[in-house]
Design a protein around this nucleic acid. Sequence first.
DNA 1: CTTATAAAAGATATTTTTATCTTTTATAAG
DNA 2: CTTATAAAAGATAAAAATATCTTTTATAAG
Lengths: 146, 146
Amino acid sequence: MFSKSCEYGMRAVIYVAKQTSLGNKTSVKEIASATNSPEAFTGKILQKLTKNNIIDSIKGPYGGFLIYEEKTKTIKLSQIVEIIDGDKIYTGCGLGLKECNAKNPCPIHDKFIDIRSSLKSMLETTTVYDLLKSETGEDKILQLKR
Amino acid sequence: MFSKSCEYGMRAVIYVAKQTSLGNKTSVKEIASATNSPEAFTGKILQKLTKNNIIDSIKGPYGGFLIYEEKTKTIKLSQIVEIIDGDKIYTGCGLGLKECNAKNPCPIHDKFIDIRSSLKSMLETTTVYDLLKSETGEDKILQLKR
DNA sequence: CTTATAAAAGATATTTTTATCTTTTATAAG
DNA sequence: CTTATAAAAGATAAAAATATCTTTTATAAG
């Protein structure tokens, strides 16, 4: 459904949000390890998310990544997906036909539109804050391993 | 959603079915051109579909690919997807977490399950015959260009 | 049996995605 | 100002997906 990059990115944002909520800045190394993602590659993705103003970063000693709680309420999953995977999840025919549209639909057009629009609406209605809330609790899998 | 290979494969099967219903065997070359897919690559995919008994092939002069109408009623889209893309569309967490399941769900687990199960059921309830029916008509895009 | 045709099989090439490694830049603290 | 730290930026590498090219096999028709 999503690219690996995108999965890493979503996990990273959730982790950064959690750490910020605990009062910590967190490093690439820590994020990668906590989210089970390759370190350098995760660094690249964090760069992209920072450039696109999803998370903030601070260079140098005591630096790291963070995202303020107020902001988590405004960042939708769809934005993260769009930044990393682009719009390919929203556009295009299920059979990969360029000429496919409502007026001249491919055989699975309608069913496909339905499924994709529910995916889209899921991504557009879920904020990082929502994810964060659902991740509070002792046994949650994105929590920092100790 | 699906890999390019899978899109080529689905288009190819629909085209072969249509041609068979018109009483024609059809070649890799014709299939590729009619479905706007790369020829040699489509050949590989047709090989796979033949080995997996989705379509039939006949070598030599007057040979080609075909799928009998009776069979189109038994072949589900899900089978084609499974053969080409495997089960990755059915399994795995939206965030790519290995530990994610109903007992220890990731933040988007439930919503993701819903969307995927509707995709799954779409693929499992749509037969090649269904697609074929919806593709009969003068203006349909998968029809042979003349 | 020979020839022509078309798929199957195998080898190789290209592109994209994923991943790592190195150098540069910013900054906090002494 | 120097040093240590951590992200940013750039270069390179590895793996996977997509694509092509060549050789082999099967078979219909003369």
